[in-house]
């Protein structure tokens, strides 16, 4: 068997390269659909995570105003009540607390007493303006028999406080 000539070697190398190229191209084409589908699915996952992260970042902005407050404890309701509903000593009872982010908790407080409605509105307005604010969650008013415009009230207010 004679030795291959240089030209035969060139042709052999060329044939090998073309065969390899065609085989790889065919393989790439055959897996293209699966590859693209997988990448597309991952891109979808990434988009979902990015949306979750964006929403989460936006929601977390809600914490910032509370962290920026000078006082992290809400004003005592007894004090507020005394300021706006003079002459009435309410029954104040602390209720459940919900845990919140960053060492905060949402504490609910129940206030019971008899008060003129006008004073009551002033009290609630002052409680809402306090920092951290008190937010009225539930209320129950029953007309008092002793005088018109006076009611027996049960209020549930909630405020965020740093633990």
């Amino acid at each position: 068997m004679s030795r291959p000539t240089r030209q035969q070697l060139w042709l052999g190398a060329a044939a090998l390269a073309v065969t390899l190229g065609v085989a790889l191209a065919l393989h790439a084409l055959s897996t293209l659909s699966d590859d693209l589908r997988r990448i597309e699915r991952k891109a979808g996952d990434l988009a979902t995570l990015q949306k979750i992260a964006a929403d989460w970042r936006a929601n977390q902005q809600a914490v910032q105003p509370f962290e920026a407050l000078a006082s992290k404890q809400p004003m005592p309701l007894a004090e507020l009540f005394a300021q706006h509903v003079p002459g009435v000593t309410p029954s104040i009872r602390q209720r459940e607390a919900r845990p919140a982010l960053a060492g905060w908790q949402a504490r609910r407080t129940e206030v019971k007493g008899e008060a003129p409605l006008a004073d009551l509105v002033q009290f609630l307005r002052a409680a809402a303006d306090a920092r951290p604010p008190w937010q009225l969650v539930e209320f129950d008013l029953t007309a008092a028999e002793r005088a018109p415009g006076v009611a027996r009230v049960t209020l549930v207010l909630e405020a965020l406080e740093k633990k």
């Binding site: 914490v63 982010l101 905060w104 949402a106 409680a127 937010q135 009225l136 969650v137 909630e158 965020l160």
Partner: peptide, 13 residues
């Protein structure tokens, strides 16, 4: 996070 979000909701007052 919900307590913080609730704090921005309209109050029952």
């Amino acid at each position: 996070l919900q307590p913080f979000l609730d704090a921005f909701q309209p109050s029952a007052a």
